[in-house]
Structures are given as C-alpha cells and as structure tokens.
C-alpha cells in the first residue's frame, strides 16, 4: 500500500539518485584523505619527533597508515614504547 501511494505521488523506492549521492560521499571522503607517500613519510617523521620528547620508541616496529572503513577514514598508528622518558 505504501509503494502504491508513493507511486501515485510520483515517487519510486529504488532511488538511483540516493545511491549515487551515498557512493559519491564515500568516495570523496577517501579521495580527500589520500596523502601522497612523500607527505605521509614527512608526517610520520614529525609525529615521531614529538613522541620522542616523551617516550623511547621501538622505531622498527612503528606502523602508521590511513585506514578506510564504512563512512570514515582514520590515521591508525601502532607505536611500541620501550620506556617513558622522565
């Protein structure tokens, strides 16, 4: 009955307009968060410098990357700490 009414009012259930908008939102989120490798490396080094003021880090084990999930993009880092500098 609902779809009957919707059709009577000129609406359809399967809106490709909505699909397009959702897909576009997501892809732009990813596009905007993509960082060139060189810039990523610079950022990694600078973050490292800041952290090293406070903690000693296992540099070889350091892992930093951009992760893309449903509807969100995040910078994810795994930074093993050897000890805290006092």
């Amino acid at each position: 009955m609902k779809s009957f009414l919707e059709r009577l009012l000129g609406r359809t259930d399967a809106s490709t307009r909505g699909i397009a908008k959702d897909r576009l939102r997501l892809v732009l989120l990813q596009d905007r968060a993509s960082i060139p490798p060189e810039q990523m490396e610079n950022m990694r080094l600078e973050i490292l410098q800041v952290l090293q003021k406070y903690v000693e880090i296992e540099e070889d084990e350091l892992d930093m990357k951009i992760e893309r999930g449903d509807g969100a993009v995040a910078l994810v880092a795994n930074i093993p700490i050897r000890r805290v500098l006092s």
């Binding site: 609406r11 359809t12 809106s15 490709t16 307009r17 909505g18 397009a20 908008k21």
Partner: peptide, 9 residues
C-alpha cells in the same frame, strides 16, 4: 524521479 543528483545533492 529520483534518477539524477539534484543541485542540492
């Protein structure tokens, strides 16, 4: 007809 992105979209 919900078949194209609107200007607002």
């Amino acid at each position: 007809n919900q078949e194209m992105l609107s200007v607002q979209d």
